[in-house]
Simulated assay, not measured.
Amino acid sequence: MSGERILVIDDSKEIVKHLTEHVLPTFGYETLHAYDGRTGLQLIQEEKPDMVMLDFQLPEMTGIDILQELAQESITIPVVLMTGYGSELSAIEAFRLGAKDYIIKPFTVDEIIETIERALVETRLTQDKENLGEQLRRLKVEMNRQANELKTLAKIGTAITSLLDVDKVLERVLDAATYLTDAEESAIWLPTEDGATLRAYERTNGHSNATPLIELSIIDSQVGQVLRSGQPLRQSVFSGQGIKLKTDFFARAVLYVPLKLRGITLGVLGVSNVAAFRSFSKRDEFLLSFLADYAAIALDNARVFQAADQALAARLEELSTLIEITRTITSSLDVDEVVQLTIQQVHNSW
């Protein structure tokens, strides 16, 4: 049973009690009741039950009067007419006015339940159709939202991975992290040269800072835990001071994800809400992890480019020195002078 609400309208208190206290609740239905037609009509208008069990002969308004009123007000509701022997003509009039079925008194429990089930079939199908339509609408909205998020991520990823300056990569990633998760602050932690601490590059108060501001222990910090395990971490604490991030600095919610490239964790990308009582969701974790993948590629590319650029600059410096030495040699025929100038050029290049 679906737990529909059934309104019983009958001037017989025995029938009302039998149906509303014993029969219908046993089969999972909720009940309302009225002993006269006018009260019953008012309950239909105000309570909007799922079905009505309607007696033909009622004080103040008959069952036919109620059906006529429902038709005039365009109220569509399954109605089963309860009538006695010899009232079949009244049942025909009730069908003309929109009644779904009728049952002749006295009736058995099986008869009343079968009649109710028949009357509710169309209502249930309509409700199922509406529920399915609503589910499809929500699914479409969710799919569109996810598609838009992926497009946004792809654009951000393309923009980030095209950068060849480490500082610019850090700034762009920090800005994107707060935008995607609606966080108040963001940070990237990268291991220091000795591997004992993590150095933070933060975005606070709406501004990114590519200059490292603080360092945390890899062993004794949540960020270090993410670096060591390679697994995301979400946490929210809305009581007390919150989550301690560093000395005298607390947050209400944090989310950390690893920066991974080819199975190696390069660092940690994190966001936090310091003042807002809003935790981060699995969706936020997915978006931030997606961004972290792009960030790891971009940082690796930028570092490779900078290393290559530095190597090229050193090579150009060497070539410049060789050119100067060659000019010295070709401009003089004095051996001692050539040797002395060559030594001087090499010394200057160091």
Rank of each mutant, 00 (worst) to 15 (best):
M53H: 11
L261D: 06
V173E: 15
L319K: 09
R303A: 07
L213S: 11
P232V: 09
R203D: 02
T161D: 03
I264V: 14
S320F: 13
V52T: 01
F56R: 06
G224M: 01
L19K: 04
L170F: 08
V304P: 12
I218H: 03
D10C: 02
D334V: 12
Q127K: 14
G270T: 02
A307N: 14
G37F: 04
L139W: 14
D165P: 07
P212W: 00
A154R: 15
L132Y: 04
D11L: 04
Q225C: 10
L233K: 02
Q344V: 05
L41Y: 01
E14C: 10
L261H: 08
L164W: 02
A71Q: 07
T115L: 07
E93A: 10
A154E: 13
L299T: 06
I188C: 02
V257F: 08
T328L: 15
E4I: 01
L97A: 02
F286M: 09
L163K: 11
L58N: 01
S332Y: 07
T26P: 13
S208G: 05
E134W: 11
G37E: 07
E4W: 03
A253R: 04
E88T: 10
A292H: 02
Q310R: 14
L227C: 06
H33T: 11
E46H: 10
A94Y: 02
T247R: 11
M53I: 00
R303D: 05
K260E: 07
L245N: 12
A295K: 05
T158H: 15
L70I: 00
K105F: 09
I325Y: 02
E60V: 13
R38D: 12
V109P: 04
I75T: 02
S289N: 09
I329Y: 06
P78E: 03
V169G: 03
A314P: 04
R203L: 06
N209W: 11
E14G: 09
K17S: 14
I104N: 03
D128T: 10
R262T: 10
V223F: 13
A159Y: 06
D248F: 08
V8H: 01
V79P: 09
V346D: 02
R199N: 12
S186A: 10
Q345A: 08
R138G: 09
L269F: 03
S162I: 11
L259N: 12
L170E: 08
S236T: 11
A91E: 08
T161A: 00
V80K: 08
Q42R: 08
V121D: 12
P49Q: 00
I44Y: 00
Q68S: 14
K129D: 09
L136C: 08
Y85W: 11
G28Y: 12
R303W: 08
N209K: 14
Y201C: 06
G270I: 02
T326I: 15
Y102A: 00
L43W: 01
Q231I: 11
T321G: 07
L233C: 03
N148T: 15
D284G: 01
A251K: 05
H18I: 09
T321L: 05
L287E: 02
D300H: 14
T321W: 09
F277E: 13
K155L: 15
I66A: 07
M53R: 06
Q146D: 12
G240H: 07
P191H: 03
K129T: 04
S332Q: 05
V274A: 09
V169D: 10
K155F: 13
Q340P: 15
